[in-house]
Every structure is written in C-alpha cells, then in structure tokens.
Simulated assay, not measured.
Amino acid sequence: MQQYLLLFLILLSSVFCFSQEEEGRVKGVVVDASNDNPLESVNIVNLNKVIGTSTNSNGAFEISAKVNDTLHFSYLGFKSIKVRVTNDWLKYGDGTTTTIKLTELALALEEVVVNQLKLTGYLEVDIKQVPAINTNYRYSISGLPSTGYEAGRQSTINKVLGSIFNPADFLHRMFGKKPNELRKLKKMKEDDEIRNLLASRFDREMLTVLLQVDKIDLDEIVSQCNYSKGFIQTANDLQILDAISECYEEYKVLNRDREGKL
C-alpha cells in the first residue's frame, strides 16, 4: 500500500513540475507584412487566460502564456489573426526570433446619402420628415460612477424579470452550456489592458472571440436585456461588456430568489 502511495506522489509531483514548466512568458515582434516595419500598439490577448498587452514602439511584446494557449492579434486597419503558443516558442523564443506579420486590410468607404429636408409649412407633414431622435434614457461612461446606461422607462427589476420569465431564458440559452465564457466576463472586467482595448473599439470582434458567440447573438443578448437599439448601435465594446455583465448579475440574483420561493 505504501508503495502505491509513493508511486502516486511521484507521479503527482511529476505532473505538477511539468505543468509548471509549461507556464511562462512568450515574446515576439509584430510587423507589417508588406514592408516588415514594426507596428506599435498592436493589441494582443491571451484568449485562454483572458489577459492582454500591446506592442511597444519597436513592435515588441511579452505576455504570460502556456503551451497551446491562443493569442489574438488585432490592429486597426489590419486583419486580425490567432496564433497558437508552441513549446519551442515558450522555451526558446527570445523576443527577436519570433515575428508575427499582420496584413493590411483594403479600406472601402460606403456611400453616404444626405437628404435635404423640404419643408411644406404644414406641421403634420413636415414633422414626419425629421429624423427620429435617439431615445436612449440611460447613459454613462464606463469606469465612472453611474446608475447605468439606460434608466428611465423601466425599473431594473421589471427589466430583468421580463428576461427571466422568457421561456427561452436567453442567458441560459446562450451561455448555459458554456460556463467558461461566463467566467470570462469577470476576468475581462478585471484586466485593465482588455478594458482599455474594449473601450476604444466598436466592432465587437474581441467580444465575439472571447465569449465564443457571433455578433448577431451578442446583439440579441443586449437587446433581450431591454437595452435600446440606439445604445447597441453606438456603445463601445466595453459598454456592451458591462451591459451584459450587469444584466447577468441581476439575472442571477432574481433567479436565485425565484428558486428560493419554489
């Protein structure tokens, strides 16, 4: 019996040592694929650990990772890519031997049509020509004290109760089988680098990558939380993250109360 116990302890220590060896920091340089010039302020996020960093003026970066972690590289005007961390990179990469190349995107401007208002002098006719006013009743800048993004028409309880008693239970439907993605919500809010990154973006790319949902589902989640279409269209990625996180926390509290009464 003691022999088996000793063997188990040896195996356990070997596994622990091996896992410790896997953990480390990877280094590299990000450059423009067209001319090999270094790119400054490229955003790098470890999708497994949910931590982020960015390149310096020389295009260099360093981030905590382990073997098989996936790093997501994104930069305005360039195609985002994912890179898997290998054992060789982790052990032998010195920051100069590993080069990540990003390809510039072709920019296409959409045609914008400006319609001039033609007033008739009749109020009932003219008022119909005036564009609809954004009716967001809730607003804030993420990071500053506030009561939320869209206050006014509904109380918080009514807002979330409507979601809880939705037969689909939208949050459970979207994330019920993805507990890791729910845990990522908290990690994303705690990492300053990721928060700063999301605050500067409006494309939802990083949110969809980290939460493993597509943009349509992401918009549906925020919509089901009774945030307005105007908010969804104008909010930055950090505000969308905070909206989802707030709604989910309220959902958990009210759902727990509901189950306690059953």
Rank of each mutant, 00 (worst) to 15 (best):
M1Y: 14
L5V: 06
I10Q: 11
F16A: 12
F18V: 12
F18N: 01
F18Q: 07
S19Y: 13
G24D: 11
K27L: 15
K27P: 08
G28V: 07
D32V: 03
D32W: 01
S34C: 07
N35R: 13
D36N: 15
L39G: 07
S41P: 01
N43K: 09
I44S: 11
V45S: 10
L47V: 12
N48Q: 14
K49W: 01
T53Y: 10
N58K: 15
G59K: 08
E62F: 05
K66V: 10
T70R: 14
L71H: 14
H72G: 08
S74A: 13
S74P: 02
F78A: 09
K79A: 15
K79F: 15
I81T: 15
K82I: 08
V83C: 07
R84V: 15
R84P: 12
R84D: 04
R84W: 13
V85W: 08
T98D: 08
T99R: 12
K101L: 06
L102E: 09
L105D: 08
Q116E: 06
Q116M: 02
D126E: 04
I127V: 10
K128E: 07
V130C: 03
A132N: 10
N136P: 00
S142C: 10
G148F: 02
G152L: 05
I157Q: 05
N158G: 02
K159A: 06
K159F: 02
I164R: 05
N166H: 06
A168C: 04
L171W: 09
R173E: 09
M174I: 14
K178A: 11
K178Q: 09
P179L: 07
N180V: 10
E181H: 00
E181V: 01
K184E: 03
E190D: 04
L197Q: 10
L207E: 14
L207P: 14
V209T: 11
L210C: 14
L211H: 11
V213G: 13
D217K: 07
D217Q: 04
E220R: 12
N226L: 14
Y227L: 03
K229H: 06
G230F: 07
A235S: 06
N236E: 02
D237H: 03
D242H: 01
A243G: 13
C247L: 04
E249Y: 01
Y251C: 05
V253W: 08
G260I: 14
